[in-house]
Each structure stands twice: as structure tokens, then as C-alpha cells.
Amino acid sequence: MKHDFDTVIDRMKTSSVKWDGAEALFGAKDLLPLWVADMDFKVPEAVSKAVEAKAAHGIFGYTTRDDGYYNSIISWMKTRHNWTVEREWICHSPGVVTALSLAVQAFTEPGDKVIVQPPVYYPFMSTTENNGREVVFNPLKEQDGRYSMDFDDLRAKIDGSVKLLMLCNPHNPGGTVWTKEDLQTLGEICLEHGILVISDEIHSDLVFEQGSHVPFASISDEFADSSITCTAPSKTFNLAGLQTSNIIIPNAGLRAAFEKETARNSIGMPNSFGPVATEAAYTEGGDWLADVLDYVKGNVEFITGYFKEHVPALKVLPLEATYLAWIDCRELGMSPEELESFFLTEAHVALNQGKAFGPGGEGFVRMNLACSRSVVEKAARQIEEAVAGLDQ
């Protein structure tokens, strides 16, 4: 491995939401923060150099996106995901969550319904509800640690008020990589009922089997014409703070409506550093990403094996994608409130609580494993000691 991920980098007093914001958010001190989905790894060297060169120029005026930026995205999508993307399809958004909100505003009216598949990334629900739309749950089914879609339930939930379906591809939490067959069936149902698919593919580069991710829009022209794909370098390369996402919309009419909403909210222009960092990451970051995936896979194997041997009541679901372990704690027999208090006050570890991800998330926690192995080991020991204390 060319890159060093073992060295622990102190992120305190850097205005880090993950580290500096943990005490205020969770209401407890001395927490090991393994919650929000950003990495504790330095970005690829090429990205740092690109940002440093931009900073050295010394002028940070209004910024556009140049040919290098667009070409890097197009090349990355073709090379990594075998998807041919046209330049004009690529729209800007500060973040994928922002894009979800913009899509709700652009393609639904107050009172319309949006289908989500819980347990799922909680902004799917909040962006829908905050815009005065109704969330409709199409819960996933869990079997042998893998999630599957319930298409019978989906068909039963659809009525004339359903306008959008938010797809998480790959799925967060749980790390399930949807197969082409999964997506084909989902897409056909949505086409039949005129439902627009918003496919959040922000974790698509973080698959452990390269090539296993299938972009929803790549399956057919019909799917491309009735979907919006949300991508970003933020999860892949740890660039969330640079506020740059790439929203891919092949349908010209949908694209115009989305960009109209972007203009209405005055958020159509990138900051000075996001485009240069994105271009450098997509152009020169492949080796770094390969090492990150190998390292995270090692963390997954460690925490899975550790709990199996030392804390058998906790079970890590098999992870096909993301650096976010989804841990089944239901054998502890705690309510969601008790489980949250237990991890904070007894284990002193800040995790995302499963209840936040909607129905089916109760009794689970989400642990960020994009950190040094020693940090994962420390968290595992603290959790082991806390669970052992329950029997005393």
C-alpha cells in the first residue's frame, strides 16, 4: 500500500463537524466520533497540490467550470462505471442533499408523495417533509444480512399522488449494491406509473468489487430519460467541505427544470476550490482510492471478527459498499433510546443511531470505518467493555 492511513491525524480545533461538533450534538464528553460520513484520511496528494496552486494564485473571484473539470467527470464515469455521460447533462449542486431538496421543489407540489426505501439515509425523509411533501415508506426486506426491495409493497403503495422515488444506489445504510435485475424491476414499475427516480449514487465509487455498481440511468434510454443521478467526489475523496456535486440529468426538460430551481435558490455557482479539487481527484486519485478501499475492507474484517469473538451480541452486516458498518444490536434487548444512551454514556462512542434511518433501523447503529485501524480497535475495546458491564 502506497499511502499511510495508520497515522492518526488530529482533527480537533479544525472546525470539524465530526470531531469538534460531537459534544454539542450528542451532549456527552470524551466521545470517540465514528458517526457522520467523512474520512479521517488526508485527500490524495494531487488534490492538495491543486488546491494549494489555486490558493497561491491569490484571487478567489466568481468561478466557472472548465473543460478539464467536465472531461474528468466524463472519463471517470466511463472508466469506473461503463456509463457514457454527455457534458451538457452535468449540473452543479453544492451537495447531493441540496440536489434532493431541489428535485423535490422542481418536480412535486405541496402534498405530493415521495417514496423512500427505509432504513435509508435520513435526509431522504427530511428534504421531503421540509418541503411540505408526504413521505411514503417502501421498507426493504433483510435476509441473511442483505437487503432486498419489496416490489409487491411498492406496487401497493403507488397512487396518483406519488411523483418521485428516491433511490439509494448503493444503499446507505447496509452497503447493499443493487443488481441490474433489482434496478430493472424498480425502473419498470416507476416507468409504468410515471414516477421520476432520483438516484443518489454518492457511494458508487466505494464498492469493494470494482465494476459491481450499476448506474440506474445506464440501464436504458428510458431509465435515463426519467431519472436524475446524484454524484459527487465528496464521499469518494473526502471533499465534502468543498461543496461540489455533479448532478447528471440526460433529459433536457428535467435538466431545465432542475437548473431553474438552482437559479431560483441562487446556488448555481461553485466555489473557487471545488472544481480544481474534483478534476485532480478524478484524474489522479485512482490509486489512492484503491488503497482506501483495501484499508477500509481491512477495518470491516477487523470489526466483524472482533465482535464475533468478543461481543457476539453485536453483528456486522456484510458490507458490499461504503465505509459505514451497519451493526445489528437487537440482541441487547434495548429500546432505541436506551441503545443511544448506552453507546454514549457507557461505551463513549458516537455512532449514528438506526432509528434515524426510518422503519427497520431500530436496534441498529452505523459506524464510520474510514479511520485509522487503531481508532477502530479502540472503539471495539470500549464497546466490548461496555457490553460486558451489562452483566455485572
Rank of each mutant, 00 (worst) to 15 (best):
Y282H: 10
Y282N: 13
T283P: 07
T283E: 07
T283S: 14
E284V: 05
E284L: 09
E284A: 13
E284I: 05
E284S: 08
E284T: 11
G285F: 05
G286E: 15
G286F: 07
D287W: 04
D287S: 14
W288H: 10
W288E: 02
W288G: 01
W288K: 05
L289S: 10
A290Y: 09
A290V: 15
A290G: 15
D291F: 07
D291K: 03
V292E: 05
L293A: 01
L293P: 01
D294N: 13
D294L: 15
D294K: 14
Y295T: 14
Y295H: 14
Y295Q: 13
Y295D: 14
V296H: 11
V296D: 05
V296I: 15
K297L: 07
K297E: 13
K297R: 15
K297T: 07
K297S: 11
K297P: 01
G298E: 15
G298N: 15
G298T: 14
G298Y: 13
N299Y: 07
N299I: 01
N299E: 10
N299D: 08
V300I: 15
E301T: 09
E301M: 04
E301K: 05
E301P: 02
E301F: 00
F302Y: 10
F302H: 02
I303R: 04
I303C: 05
I303K: 03
T304S: 12
T304Q: 11
G305S: 03
G305K: 03
Y306D: 01
Y306A: 01
Y306H: 09
Y306T: 00
Y306N: 01
F307R: 02
F307I: 00
F307Y: 11
K308W: 09
K308N: 08
E309V: 08
E309D: 15
E309P: 04
H310Y: 11
H310L: 05
H310F: 09
H310S: 06
V311G: 01
A313C: 04
A313P: 00
A313H: 01
A313V: 12
L314T: 02
K315N: 11
K315R: 13
V316M: 12
V316G: 03
V316D: 08
P318Q: 07
P318C: 09
P318D: 04
L319M: 13
L319R: 09
L319G: 01
L319W: 06
E320H: 09
E320G: 08
